[in-house]
């Protein structure tokens, strides 16, 4: 079955972005069930990651009456209710119900132009899947960005807020950029205020979480003139290329940073010398045809066979040298069983 059918609701994708605005409220124009399902999902994943989290989500609570007579009035009432707590931003997300009954959500929100209201046209599953929701939310929120003087810093675009390793991946990218003497100006969108989003037009390069966000990268480039790197690095070689590419984009000599990282990678390889010759069987997403696994086969003289020791293949793939190191530690622990 194609993944588009099974990847989850557009609402969930958009909510993974909008609920990461610390002073924002997200309003779902749909039945209460959509708000409950998604609140529960976000809560569960955040608690699993060690964060007590209750997302700021309101529902327009559409019932059969609104399905028949329209839900625009319910939307107006709920925007007023959200505005009462003076949030930094009110994100209005549409569900498949509001899309099917044809409410003119943009027109309703235009009447609240004195408030920081942004419409994210999700449309539930009628608007695509989870990743489409992420894209739509990022592009809608980019309205808050202001063109500014380029500061030589970096903005991270579209970190996967529901990913278990999201902070570890951030730390790794931060570490790599620090080798180049570069800091991260903005995490768009993760644990930031609505005001912070103004800085979206001020960084010198955007780094996308992964290449699925190319459309967002192109959109921001055309809007703010900021070039982008298509994804966080995966694998040892790609990590070195990442340093070189970021350096080149910002006009920085990356040779010392690359040499330091290469040294770091040599230490990692040395610490796994006893891993040589292992036969592993990839789980999860099936045969590892990504370049990083070919790289591992060559460096560690390991092989991936159906009869090998079953090991998990992380999804998404591990980021940078540190991510690869964590995956190898997990594999070695399994091989000891």
């Amino acid at each position: 079955m194609n993944s588009y059918r099974t990847e989850g609701c557009t609402l969930s994708g958009a909510l993974s972005v909008t609920t990461a605005i610390k002073d924002g409220i997200t309003l779902i124009h749909g039945p209460e069930g959509c708000a409950h399902h998604n609140s529960s999902l976000l809560h569960a994943l955040m608690v699993d990651s060690g964060r007590l989290f209750a997302p700021a989500i309101l529902s327009t609570s559409l019932t059969e009456t609104e399905v028949i007579f329209g839900g625009e009035e319910a939307l107006e009432d709920t925007i007023r209710r959200a505005a009462a707590s003076e949030p930094g931003v009110i994100c209005v997300l549409t569900s498949c119900v509001s899309a099917a009954i044809g409410d003119d959500v943009r027109a309703v929100c235009r009447d609240f132009s004195h408030l920081p209201v942004v419409v994210v046209p999700t449309g539930g599953f009628l608007g695509g899947g989870f990743s489409q929701g992420v894209e739509e939310a990022l592009m809608a929120l980019s309205d808050f960005g202001e063109m500014g003087e380029k500061t030589g810093s970096v903005t991270l675009i579209g970190e996967k807020n529901l990913e278990y390793e999201v902070e570890a991946n951030y730390q790794e990218v931060s570490r790599l950029l620090s080798l180049l003497g570069i800091s991260i100006e903005l995490r768009f969108v993760r644990n930031i205020t609505a005001t912070a989003m103004k800085k979206l037009g001020s960084s010198s390069v955007n780094i996308l979480r992964d290449p699925s966000l190319i459309r967002v990268g192109n959109f921001l480039e055309s809007r703010f003139g900021i070039p982008f790197i298509p994804g966080f690095p995966v694998g040892l070689e790609e990590t070195l290329v990442f340093l070189e590419t970021v350096g080149k984009t910002l006009g920085i000599d990356s040779s010392r940073a690359a040499a330091a990282e290469k040294e770091n990678q040599h230490r990692l390889i040395g610490s796994f010398h006893n891993f040589h010759g292992r036969v592993l069987s990839p789980g999860g997403n099936g045969p590892p045809d990504q370049p990083v696994f070919k790289e591992l086969e060559q460096i560690f003289d390991i092989s991936f066979e159906d009869h090998g020791k079953p090991v998990p293949i992380p999804d998404p793939l591990p980021v940078g040298t540190s991510g690869l190191s964590r995956m190898l530690h997990r594999w070695r622990r399994i091989c000891r069983e």
């Binding site: 989850g8 609701c9 557009t10 609402l11 969930s12 399902h37 999902l41 498949c96 539930g124 599953f125």
Partner: peptide, 21 residues
């Protein structure tokens, strides 16, 4: 849709089917 399916599927822990619209 899959979005409607995942919540009951994960919280009830029973075999459920979906038309994945």
């Amino acid at each position: 849709s899959s979005g409607c399916y995942y919540y009951p599927a994960t919280i009830l822990r029973r075999e459920l089917h979906c038309s994945f619209l």
